[in-house]
Simulated scan of single mutants.
Amino acid sequence: MLSRDYELNGTINRAASEGAKFALILAMLEQDCTHRPHLEKTKETNQIPEVETGLNYYRSSPLSATDTYWKTCQQTSQLIHNGQLQSAQLWLDMHPEPLSQYNKADGIDAEVMANCSINTQTRLKQAEQNELKIDETGLYDILQKLEPVSA
């Protein structure tokens, strides 16, 4: 079964430099991925699972800024202002800064968008315009406007 699959036996990789042959082999691939052969996931043998969990003793960076972050930020600025750079570095390692001010993966600030290239800005604006509003209750109104078909 593996010898007949173009992806797993390396045929696609070898044909990558030949344009027409590569396009033909891609077209011949099975579209439904459930019909294609797949490799079974190997079982990981970890004899000592508690070693991996205990390796990281440091806090991870929070996703968004909270009220407690602003308090620790003041402590960091005081240490830097007093010239205690090593203490400030230790403090930041013990209290990592958040990754963003707000935990919104889809939101991009206007300042960030203004610094993007013009192509990126137009693509982001087009994505907002192509977004369709879905009104599930409108289906009832459409069905009411239809005339009943008599057989």
Rank of each mutant, 00 (worst) to 15 (best):
A23P: 00
L85R: 08
M28C: 08
Y6G: 10
L2S: 06
M28K: 14
L79V: 06
A20G: 03
G19Y: 13
S150W: 11
E7N: 12
S77N: 14
E111Y: 06
K41M: 06
T11M: 14
Q86M: 05
L99P: 00
R4W: 04
S100H: 04
I12G: 08
H81A: 12
L124H: 10
K133C: 03
N9Y: 02
K133H: 11
L85D: 04
L63Q: 12
W70F: 02
V149H: 07
E136N: 07
Q126M: 14
Q129H: 09
D141V: 04
Q129G: 02
N115I: 02
T76Q: 04
A110G: 03
E50H: 09
T34Y: 13
T122G: 01
L2M: 04
T122P: 00
T72Y: 02
E40Y: 05
R36M: 01
C73I: 01
R4N: 06
A105E: 11
L92K: 08
V112W: 08
A114K: 05
Y69H: 06
R4P: 01
R14N: 07
N46Q: 07
L63S: 14
T68G: 04
T42A: 11
L2V: 01
C33M: 15
A127G: 06
L8C: 00
N9Q: 02
Y140R: 07
N119G: 14
L79G: 03
S87D: 09
A15S: 04
T122R: 14
A114G: 01
G83S: 02
T137I: 02
L124M: 14
H35D: 10
Y140E: 10
E30A: 07
E44K: 12
A65D: 02
A23C: 03
L2G: 11
P49K: 00
M1N: 06
T11P: 04
S3R: 13
A20H: 05
P62A: 04
K145D: 13
S150N: 11
M113Q: 08
L146Q: 13
Q121E: 02
T11F: 05
A110M: 03
D93S: 10
Q75D: 15
G83A: 05
V112K: 12
E40M: 11
S150D: 13
M1E: 08
T42G: 09
N115Q: 15
D67E: 15
L29G: 07
Q78T: 12
E128C: 07
T34F: 10
I12H: 10
R14F: 01
A110W: 00
T42N: 09
E111T: 07
L85K: 08
D141C: 09
Y58P: 00
L39R: 09
E50F: 14
R123M: 11
T53Y: 01
N119Y: 08
L90Q: 14
D109F: 09
S61D: 10
T11L: 13
Y140G: 05
Q126N: 14
N82R: 15
Q86S: 06
L124V: 09
A15I: 00
E7F: 06
A151S: 12
S117R: 04
Y69M: 02
K41P: 03
H35T: 13
I142E: 15
C116Q: 15
